[in-house]
Amino acid sequence: MANEIMDRNNLMKNWFNNDSWMNNIPSIFDNNFPDDSTLKTDIKESDKKYEVHVDMPAFDKRDIDINYENDVLTVSGHRDSFNDHNDNKGDMIMSERSSGRFMRQYRLPSVDTKAIKATYDKGVLKVDLPKLENKLDSGHHVDID
């Protein structure tokens, strides 16, 4: 189930990344639309839970927000600009680190919202989302008389 979602995401990313028109968008937009390197994620699924690991280097734990609503986990945060980007001497020859607001969403159904736990250590956010033991009915079959 989760793999199908990831396959669709990868298909869309590949389509956009291989499209020559998309590759010609000016770099002026780079700071507003973070590239593929932002918030890299691993998601594991077992019978009992989902485990989400999100790379969020140089984020302060207070600047990370986690929300789960309507079967969607949203991880967002902001990172202020870096002090060493102020290049008064003119010696900065390259700058790739980005700052600003970042957000990712993941569809993870049937989660026990009261048991979600998160930790942040060494630039990696880990979110454990236990699954509901008794899944709620998502529909009801109606027989025709």
Rank of each mutant, 00 (worst) to 15 (best):
E69S: 15
R62E: 15
D87K: 05
D60H: 11
R79N: 05
N70P: 00
D84Q: 08
N88S: 12
I66Y: 00
D84G: 06
D80W: 10
D71A: 12
I64H: 04
D84W: 11
F59V: 03
D91T: 13
S81R: 10
N88E: 14
D84L: 11
R79D: 03
N88D: 11
I66N: 01
H78A: 06
N88A: 09
F59Y: 12
D63Q: 13
I64R: 02
I66Q: 00
L73A: 07
S76A: 10
K61T: 04
T74V: 06
N86Q: 12
R79T: 03
D71P: 03
H78S: 11
D91N: 11
D65V: 10
K89H: 10
V75Y: 00
D84H: 08
L73S: 03
D71N: 14
S81A: 15
H85N: 09
H85W: 10
Y68K: 06
H78Q: 07
L73W: 02
N86D: 13
D60V: 07
I66A: 00
F82D: 09
S76E: 11
G90P: 10
N86M: 14
V72T: 08
E69D: 14
V75P: 03
Y68R: 07
D63L: 08
F82M: 05
K89Q: 12
K89S: 15
N86C: 10
R79Q: 12
V75H: 02
T74S: 06
T74G: 00
I66G: 00
N83R: 14
F59D: 02
V72S: 03
N70F: 01
R62D: 15
D80H: 11
R79I: 04
D87V: 08
I64K: 02
I64F: 02
I66K: 00
F59M: 10
V75T: 02
V72L: 04
E69P: 07
S81K: 06
D80A: 15
N70E: 05
D80K: 15
N83I: 13
S76C: 02
D80Q: 14
F82E: 09
K61H: 04
N83F: 12
D65R: 08
N83C: 07
L73Y: 02
R79W: 02
N83W: 12
D71E: 15
E69M: 14
R62F: 12
D60I: 05
E69F: 14
K61L: 05
D71V: 03
S76W: 00
N86R: 14
N67Q: 11
D87H: 08
H85M: 14
G77S: 01
F59T: 03
R62W: 07
Y68N: 07
D84A: 09
H78T: 03
F59G: 05
H85Q: 14
N67D: 13
D63Y: 09
T74N: 04
Y68I: 06
I66V: 12
D63N: 15
N86A: 13
V75E: 01
D80C: 07
D80S: 15
D84M: 11
K61E: 10
R62Y: 09
N83Q: 13
F59H: 05
D63V: 05
G77F: 00
E69I: 14
V75S: 03
H78W: 09
